[in-house]
Amino acid sequence: MRKRYLPYLFIMPAVIFMLLIVAYPILLTFRSSLFHEVLIRPWEGVEFVGMDNFVTLIKNQEFWSSLQRTAIWTVSSVLGKTLIGLSIAILLNQKFKFRGIYRTLILIPWVTPQVVSAIIWRWVYNGEYGMLNYVLMRLGLINTGISWLGHKTTAFIAAVINDMWIGIPFMIVVFLSGLQGIPNELYEAAKVDGANRIQTLFKITLPQLKPVFLTATILSIIWTFNSFNIIWVLTKGGPVNATETLVIKTYKEAFGKFDIGMGSTYAVTTFILLMIFSLFYWRMFSEKDEI
């Protein structure tokens, strides 16, 4: 009898809180996306326009190029984070001296506030005084300094690297914890069967890591897709629009132009895209075995 309402009692505070602070604003955003409302043009009024904003959005070439850019941004950054994170986690999963020190040092980027990290990287990338150019020149990799944030391609890569930098520690920690959850007996059995290390990696480690892998990558994809601070501080979406992802675009609509209608439309579209993608991703990878 008690047990039936007890769990609800427990989740109640969190639910009420989330409803008020997250769900309600999300609903408001959905609603705003159906209205024309530009705060700095009060004379135009607030008007219900149905799906007009979405039609405008779909017809807008800038939206499509921004979407494409966001996709490249997300894929390259998440791929980098995952590959590096996984490799380092596998290395750190061995037992050896100083492992604790490595593990601690690796966390430093994670504890660096994103804004602060972007400020540091901006200084590292500086074309005239930056350390990156200096080191690359000393290593003989380049002859003259590169203006990293001053060209479209390099600025994009620079932003991706900054984003990867922030995200790698989380990946390492999650993968490491996943690796530690793999029962030792499986490895013993493989050894008995005479499997080499590569075989062990692909036959045991990776399949066993799948649930962790799935959760970590999907979270990472969502976070990277929505990553704002780093790009904003580094480039403000420039040069031209080379780093203008959907979130930056949304911000410019909502807070540059104070166009609440279009800003919300961008937000809702981003949400729907991520939702569809997540469901699809989850399906594709967890089809065969239940998680």
Binding site: T29, I222, F228, I260, A267
Partner: peptide
């Protein structure tokens, strides 16, 4: 729902949150 909340960037919710 807990997972879904992660799909809305806080940036996106600034305007309605500001109103609240």
């Amino acid at each position: 729902s807990v997972l879904a909340t992660q799909m809305f960037s806080p940036v996106v919710l600034l305007v309605p949150l500001y109103k609240i």
